[in-house]
Amino acid sequence: MIELISYGAFFLTLALTYAIMCLGLNVQWGQTGLFNVGVAGFVGIGAYVSALLTTPDAPDRFGGFDLPIAVGWIAAAIAAALASALLGAMTLRLRSDYLAIATFGFAVVVQLAVLNLQKLTGGPFGISFIPRPFGALASDPLVFGLCNLAVVGAVTLAVYGALEHLMRSPWGRVLRAIREDEQAASALGKNATVFRLQAFAVGGAIMGLAGAVQGHFIGYISPEGYVPILTFQVWAMLIVGGSGNNRGAIAGAILVWAIWAASGAALAAFIPADQQARASALKIVMIGVAICLVLLLRPRGLLGERATVSRHVENAGDHAKDKAS
């Protein structure tokens, strides 16, 4: 029983780290229509920045700086926001497909950089001994697991709350207006490039934060954690959950991560040991099947986008709910 709860806490904690990434992607794609296919790059930047700042001094590489975990997380978000702002400033003025090319290239560059800048990142060996929140409790797996879940759950909730607040704010309204008709929005004085850039940076910051949180939860990061398959997973989570809906992003992350974990377990149980490396590709197939099923049964995802209205309009909330149901 205790083992089951421990495993449940572990599973949910990991799933929520993906949920945070998915919330970041939802700001960019779901709310703003920015096609970022380099999610792994921004997550990776966050993970490495925080690891570098919080790990104890290591003789074979630059740092670590042994700073508090919270400092690492904040720095991770800021670093990923700066990286997104820089990339966005160069590409958001161009046609929208250039953003896809640029973000994909960016993620590859990040992955190659962490692989090769051995003095900074530990190269292929990665960085270990990343401090874990409540590390002192590690001897009791149940308490340790639940405490970790509480921390990651609180971060998820805080990000969710902040995003909901923003989506119902005048800032969120302008973002929707630009997405629906850029020409009309600019005739009203709304600068589409500026708002898109902000949304892109906000999304990037959240992905960076998610990368940091995940790194501290697992305690170890390495370059192969930030390959394109991660981007694919986060996109699958958002599509399955319902693009444009923050709750959908969280639900999609948990469901897709469950499918991923379950298919991994099924492969381990049913496939002979010498074939397992090859069979692991089946996990990706399972996610693909899940996406197809959801899109057939619920084309807008588990929880589709709902009408969002300023919180200052009385009764409008009820009205919007009526419309959506």
Binding site: L166, P170, W171, V174, R176, A177, E180, K190, V202, S310
Partner: peptide, 26 residues
């Protein structure tokens, strides 16, 4: 029009110099 937004929200979007259009001010 902004088709998915409500009629009221369409009109409010025309407002100028809104502090709430600045990200952190929210």
């Amino acid at each position: 029009p902004f088709p998915q937004m409500t009629v009221l929200e369409n009109v409010v979007t025309g407002a100028q110099h809104q502090t709430g259009e600045r990200l952190f001010a929210n």
